[in-house]
Amino acid sequence: MPAVLEIEGLRKTYKSRRRGARNALDGFDMRVEAGQVHGFLGPNGSGKTTTLRTLLGLIRPDGGRMQILGHEVPEALPTVARQVGAIVESPQFFPHFSARDTLSLLAGAGEVPAIRIDEVLELVGLRDRAGERVKTYSLGMKQRLAVASALLKSPKLLILDEPANGLDPGGIREMRTLMRTLAESGMTVVLSSHILGEIQLICDSVTIISLGRRVAYGPVEEVLAQHSSGSVRVRLEAVADLAAAADALTRAGARVTPHPDHLMLAGVDKPAMVTRLLAEQGLYVSELAPVAVDLESVFLDLTATAPVPGQNRQVDQSTKVGGAGQPGATTGGWGA
């Protein structure tokens, strides 16, 4: 599939006299293929918004290459901007203008036919409130307006930063459906979000960023599979037998983590081996369940941002590719 968005070795350093230099982007790579819904994930301060702003010409990069729809950006942004719809961070609009005025002014600036305004208002569910001032809108309604503004020019590439922020559950589901519909119509969607359950449901592929570098990428199933530990949860008929079972399984080479009422096993290729082994010892299994890994646990694992009881994690405390415990540094490259 052709790439709609490609980033290679993107670098951005913020320099401060007091705090010195900080690499917001440290050789970041990304590739998004046409027609996909692509999730862009990362902890706070990892460089997601900086990446999007740089891509859209709002921030000057210090190094690296970017392409949108086959054009080098930021040089070709005036050419491709008409085909890229984007919202970056919290939606902000002039509070005294109505939604219709806001969209009308954007449509005027971008030479978009006025009929498109009603189409997008209908699409995001703001048709009946379009004449009200934006300052009377809830966060979710502003979010809908932001999505409407991004959709106004019928873009080929839609970039949405936290589009579900502030939406009610119904709104989140509508947004999910909208994203899928847009992708099916041929639009490529890049979603940055912290609602990982949503990302897992909506997205075809993901990129995970931590401290300015890519830590994982690819189709969602592949990323999950790569980080699946093959965990299995085992319960026995008699809780008192857990210790003996743990001993037998450890001797057989499984990594066992005892819990008060069950055992967690890792490194088990065939769960049937567990029942056979324990039955031979006279221990009878009441539950044997493979534990499916989800995107949230993969994300927390990859970025090392899982909460630890008694510790207050700071914003920049997350995993850096190539750092301690991360031997497999990415090499980057177009479509890597």
Binding site: G57, L58, V88, P91, Q92, F93, F94, L106, A109, G110
Partner: peptide
């Protein structure tokens, strides 16, 4: 000033990057 303050300028630059 209000355009900068409310984010309108950024919105506009996403449409007109010059």
């Amino acid at each position: 000033g209000a355009e900068w303050n409310t984010g309108g300028m950024m919105n506009l630059l996403l449409w007109r990057p010059k």
